[in-house]
């Protein structure tokens, strides 16, 4: 996969779309910020594993340019409905496009990177 799609997205469009969601965490302003949502269910081992895995991956591959939010659907069932969550854990890559949904505990790092369009970098 290409490693440059983040660059190709115009900053203006990005802003307008994600103004509310983006958190300023980035140091590298030239690279697009990743917006990730991880939906888990309570404190099961699968949930814990998924959280651990995504945090590690983000730190390794997207340092300072990701926005990760972990949502416990037990707490917010209506969010599960809105986001069409069926399987958990589900990781949704909201940005950059295309939108991707990855299910499972994210132990298969290769697949995760592939899904996040970070495959080539590794």
């Amino acid at each position: 996969m290409k490693n440059s799609p983040k660059k190709s997205v115009p900053a203006g469009k990005r802003k307008s779309e994600l103004a509310g969601e983006l958190e300023q965490s980035g140091s590298n302003s030239r690279q697009a910020k990743y917006v990730l949502r991880l939906y888990v269910s309570g404190s099961t081992s699968k949930s814990a594993l998924a959280i651990e895995n995504i945090k590690r991956i983000c730190e390794q591959h997207l340092k300072h340019r990701y926005d990760l939010e972990v949502i416990d659907i037990y707490q917010q069932p209506s969010l599960a409905r809105e986001e069409q969550i069926v399987a958990v854990p589900t990781l949704i890559k909201r940005f950059p496009p295309p939108l991707r949904r990855l299910i499972g505990d994210l132990s298969n790092v290769k697949k995760v990177l592939f899904g996040l369009d970070l495959g080539m970098r590794q």
Partner: peptide
Amino acid sequence: VDHVSITRSEFGETGEYDLEGLFIRIAD
């Protein structure tokens, strides 16, 4: 009424999972 809509193309399997999301939606 809840519409469970999932499209395969969006998914990639990265490890173990369960259908707790569905359970929670039904329970709710």
